[in-house]
Design a binder for these strands. Sequence first.
DNA 1: ATTCCTGCAAACAGTTTGCACTACG
DNA 2: CGTAGTGCAAACTGTTTGCAGGAAT
Lengths: 163, 163
Amino acid sequence: MNTSTRSKQEVDRWCDDFESLCRARGIRVTPQRLAVYRVLAEDRSHPKPESVYRRVRERVPGLSQATVYRILEFLEREKLIKRVSADDGVGHFDANLASHQHLVCRVCGRMIDVSVPALTNARVPSVTGFAAEELDIRIVGRCRQCARLKAGRRKPLEPSDPD
Amino acid sequence: MNTSTRSKQEVDRWCDDFESLCRARGIRVTPQRLAVYRVLAEDRSHPKPESVYRRVRERVPGLSQATVYRILEFLEREKLIKRVSADDGVGHFDANLASHQHLVCRVCGRMIDVSVPALTNARVPSVTGFAAEELDIRIVGRCRQCARLKAGRRKPLEPSDPD
DNA sequence: ATTCCTGCAAACAGTTTGCACTACG
DNA sequence: CGTAGTGCAAACTGTTTGCAGGAAT
């Protein structure tokens, strides 16, 4: 099983839920929004806007980059997707709203979903003077491929979306 | 006490350590590097390159932005400072290498150091096929100021470096 | 003296915006 | 039909790079 995609049936279900949730909330459902959401639902690799754009465009030819940015920002504001924190300075998005953590390779930047029970169940600490809502946990290290390489090479693999 | 600065004596000590560590490692010590490091040591607010530039420039007049970027990247590579993950798409840096967490306000973006024992002591989980090295934990919520404001206002306060 | 660092300015990459047009509900 | 969404292109912000001169060891 390819770890960076989801099964078609799961994706279909997510998209159906997405569509009904939008309608219920009075959010307009456009082909562009549906397509952006679907690409995110299919892709576990936390793609960047540019990569979302490339893939959505194959299905919605006229699509413009600006629209992708606007949709991603909008869906994030509506809490229908999440923006995941990364230190490469570019946005990464995730349709998986369930509590989980990310393995982050410090060499290639790849980000892989995991769910470590001890962390998923960790209580959000109470801190005075701060309304803590959730924990965002990244496990930083080296992925299998990068761990093999001897130090020295700078960028053995391209970041998150190699395609 | 101002939570976003460190005492002069502590800063001096950090800078001394920094300088001797550089000499020991054969890293050239330039006024620019020293000044960038000092600004980071003084500032607990995880400043962006632009804000580091502004402050360092007051002390090193000729300084160019490119140099700040180069120094930040260099110091990070040498593990003398850390780049902290943020989702505003711009780099944020931290001279505090001790294990700690960040409170991140989802409204204004402010990032505050905390050390929650339960999290600081959390064991780095072992994940097959991944050489896990450290945990990067962000506690996301609303800071005191932003928690007070009723929903509606978009950006009550400016992100991390208001000055 | 040699090697590495810095300043400058231009190039770049990612993201945002104004405006006219289109389409969802 | 009205409002909100989209496409296009230009503007912007943050960051990187090439090169010539300068400084640290």
